[in-house]
């Protein structure tokens, strides 16, 4: 009875060896990946008043992504250098071009999105509730991927224009 398991077991071991031998992988840390996405989103966005001097990337909430965002400092979007900062109120966020929002409490989240609703701020979040609350771009985490959804109506209402490439790659466009 045990004998019939030998062949499959041998092949499984071989498969394991094969996998372990390969060391090229296209993987990234989740927060690193989200920061890279935000960087690309900014490149595919047109603001009603194109940023001059600096493109302001702001964040509120989750510290994990801040580290990733800080790495954007010194890079440029449409030839304008990026500045990265944390904000602590929707009022302060109105001067941002891009805002990453991670607020766990729905009431607070709704207040932030409402306060920025008609401002030309690209609001990005990673909470499922944020899509219902009409944040413009919301990440969806899959077991081995990060994808995103776009509230296009909301972005348009704020005067932002998002490129076709972004719309094509989104998981969902509303």
């Amino acid at each position: 009875m045990a004998r019939r398991w030998i062949a499959p077991a041998r092949l499984m071991l071989l498969a394991l060896g094969l996998g372990a031998a390969a060391s090229w992988a296209e993987t990234a840390e989740e927060s690193e990946l989200k920061a890279a996405y935000i960087y690309r989103f900014a490149q595919y966005t047109t603001w009603p008043d194109p940023p001059s001097g600096e493109v302001k990337f702001c964040s509120y909430g989750q510290p994990a992504i801040d580290e990733g965002l800080r790495k954007l400092q010194g890079r440029t979007v449409q030839n304008v250098p990026i500045s990265v900062s944390r904000v602590d109120s929707p009022q302060a966020a109105k001067i941002c071009h891009v805002l990453f929002l991670h607020v766990d409490r729905r009431g607070e989240l709704a207040a932030w999105v409402a306060a920025l609703a008609l401002q030309p701020v690209l609001v990005v979040s990673d909470l499922p509730d944020a899509f219902r609350e009409k944040a413009m771009i919301v990440f969806a985490v899959e077991p081995n991927r990060v994808t995103f959804r776009i509230n296009l109506t909301q972005a348009r209402a704020s005067g932002l224009s998002l490129s076709g490439q972004m719309l094509k790659l989104a998981q969902e466009v509303r």
Partner: peptide
């Protein structure tokens, strides 16, 4: 990761099992 195009990012795996 920062050099990757948007399309490449959508195909990128995660180094660690995600929590959410």
């Amino acid at each position: 990761v920062l050099e990757r195009s948007l399309e490449e990012l959508t195909r990128m795996g995660l180094t660690r099992p995600p929590r959410d």
